[in-house]
Amino acid sequence: MIIKILGTGCANCQKAKALAASVVAELGLDAVVEEVTDIPAIMSYGVMSTPGIVIDEKLVGYGGVPTREQMIQLLQQAGA
């Protein structure tokens, strides 16, 4: 699966990216974590409050760094 973190490089976007990567490693998922910083690309998902989280082209969250348990849930749901 492809996990995209939408953000303009802000501190919270970095946090979200690190969290996603660490949860992927913890759950042993076959996934890549990418960062999308291009404004038109971010806007194409309809996100105004960064960081946004996109899993396999589906927007699953925006406007803040999810907690670890939320992130685990998001990735498990997407993987199932």
Partner: peptide, 16 residues
């Protein structure tokens, strides 16, 4: 709730 780091997407979103 708004962080000034999201000012750009917010601006575009509003104008759009």
């Amino acid at each position: 709730p708004f962080c000034s780091c999201s000012a750009v997407p917010l601006f575009i979103g509003f104008v759009e």
